Amino acid sequence: MRRVLTRTTPVYVAGHTGLAGSACLRLLRRRGFSRLITATSAELDLRDRAATKEFLGRHRPEVVVAAAARVGGIAANAAAPAEFLSDNLRIQLSLLDAARELRLPRLLFLGSSCVYPRDCPQPIRESALLSGPLEPTNEAYAIAKIAGLVHVRSVRREDGLPWISAMPTNLYGPGDRFDAERAHVLPALLRKFHEAVRTGADTVEVWGTGRPRREFLHADDLAAACLALLQHYDDDEPVNVGTGEDIAIAGLARLIAETTGFTGEVRFDPSRPDGTPRKLLDVGRVRALGWRPAIGLREGLASTYDWFVRHQEVVV
């Protein structure tokens, strides 16, 4: 029987400075959790197995939120696939192996919707995992995340520890990376349209055809889903976390143009990769727990853009 999560439960948020981890930390603080454990990458390199085990052994968290990862958009994944594979495998092995050796009672591993095959039926059910070829542009990252999902399931089956996994859809929100070359599509476009307005440019170029469809989830909604899963879910099947709605990249570009005040021309560059044609998650399992996203895309874009404008000197 797993322990009940209370406000005095020691919780370690791995990757607390990233988009997902920082949202989880904000929510836990708002909910009054008083024993939160964090470490920056300068304080703890999670690729270092010995250091990771020493840290976990010293702090003994009862809950681990495994949100630490090397992440990036299509350009970043294409430029450094070996680094994405190696860094993420090492982070996961260090963290999960140490947590297993110490028999830490509860762990939530955050995967990604990119683990699913490129051409699986929509909306994507959790059972589609490992049912077909991956999208080549993020294959290395996806394989690392798949390894993490299988690792969690294997620990459950071999050791009986109530660890769980979640597969979030495309995330955005405050604390995101807005670098045009390394960011995911939404923050990269926010920055690109902002710069066009700032410089008075007449056009903005968007990678690809604009036809692929994507689902976007605000990081604060993901954090609420993570807490719901930690409180109510205990099964070896990973759980999709998304909105259940998607939008074409062309439609997203129009929304971002409205958000930033850009009134010029949007040009699509079909010589650039589109990535997966569509990636919409079936979210029936997480909704059965009572969770629903609370932040609509238009509202989330406005608040994220406001955050970006106020923190440009930090994120550019």
Rank of each mutant, 00 (worst) to 15 (best):
S112T: 15
S112H: 05
S112W: 02
S113V: 10
C114K: 01
C114G: 08
V115Q: 04
V115F: 08
V115W: 02
V115A: 07
Y116K: 06
Y116V: 04
Y116N: 06
Y116M: 02
P117I: 08
P117R: 03
P117Y: 00
P117W: 01
P117K: 07
R118L: 12
R118E: 14
D119K: 12
D119R: 15
D119V: 14
D119N: 15
D119L: 15
C120W: 02
C120A: 13
P121M: 04
P121Y: 08
Q122S: 04
Q122Y: 07
P123T: 05
P123Y: 08
P123A: 09
R125M: 02
E126R: 01
E126Q: 04
S127E: 14
A128R: 13
A128E: 11
A128S: 14
L129Q: 04
L130T: 13
L130G: 10
S131N: 12
S131Q: 14
S131I: 10
G132E: 04
G132N: 08
G132I: 08
P133M: 12
P133A: 13
L134T: 06
L134M: 08
E135G: 02
E135F: 06
P136D: 03
P136G: 09
T137R: 15
T137I: 13
T137D: 10
N138K: 11
E139P: 03
E139V: 12
A140E: 01
A140F: 00
A140T: 06
A140Y: 02
Y141R: 10
Y141L: 09
A142G: 01
A142F: 03
A142W: 02
I143G: 02
I143Q: 12
I143N: 12
I143E: 08
A144C: 01
A144Y: 00
A144G: 05
K145N: 05
K145P: 04
I146F: 06
I146Q: 13
A147G: 15
G148Y: 00
G148D: 03
L149P: 00
L149R: 00
L149G: 06
H151N: 14
H151F: 15
H151C: 10
V152P: 01
V152N: 04
V152T: 08
V152H: 03
R153L: 02
R153I: 05
S154V: 12
S154P: 06
V155I: 13
V155Q: 03
R156P: 09
R156T: 12
